[in-house]
């Protein structure tokens, strides 16, 4: 049996736009992932802590408040400090291309914008973790 990938979908900061996060959470679950959704108003510390406790493969951050340049690096840094730098941090929201490039340079995974289809995110995650899933399938 292949291990099911565990994904934490998180809403950092005070941003209340949760339509996208909920759609992605539901879509990933329907695609066979194990999904944990943090709910709203999480600090980067709360998210990093939840990622460790839930032993997830990836954290998907949804940010539509313009605070992406602060919150993505914070979560990446905190995970690194906790020795969990192997957890992928990816995400989506209202993020200009220029900022996407800067964030990807800081070790953030892919950032999806408006109009993304869920299957693109599914394909990205399956592809990103193909070795992890394959290894465990081989056991």
């Amino acid at each position: 049996m292949a291990k099911r990938l565990r994904i934490l979908v998180a809403k950092p900061g005070l941003d209340g736009h949760d339509r996208g996060a909920k759609i992605v959470a539901r879509g990933l679950r329907d695609a066979g992932f194990e999904v944990i959704y943090t709910g709203l108003h999480q600090t980067p510390e709360m998210i990093a802590e939840a990622a460790l406790q839930e032993d997830v493969d990836a954290v998907g951050l949804s940010i539509l408040s313009g605070a992406h340049m602060t919150l993505f690096p914070d979560v990446v840094r905190l995970l690194g400090e906790k020795g969990a730098g192997d957890i992928l941090v990816f995400g989506g929201g209202i993020i200009p291309d220029e900022d996407k490039q800067t964030l990807e340079g800081l070790g953030v995974g892919r950032l999806f914008g408006p109009g993304t289809e869920i299957r693109e995110i599914v394909e990205y995650l399956r592809d990103r973790f193909s070795d992890r899933v394959a290894e465990e399938t081989g056991d």
């Binding site: 005070l14 941003d15 209340g16 108003h41 408040s65 605070a67």
Partner: peptide, 22 residues
């Protein structure tokens, strides 16, 4: 902005990164 909508001052720790953004 979101901190104001949520009743928090711009210098609140929870407001970091969101001041004046939305």
């Amino acid at each position: 902005d979101f901190p104001t909508l949520y009743g928090r001052d711009s210098d609140d720790a929870r407001a970091r990164g969101e001041v004046g953004k939305c």
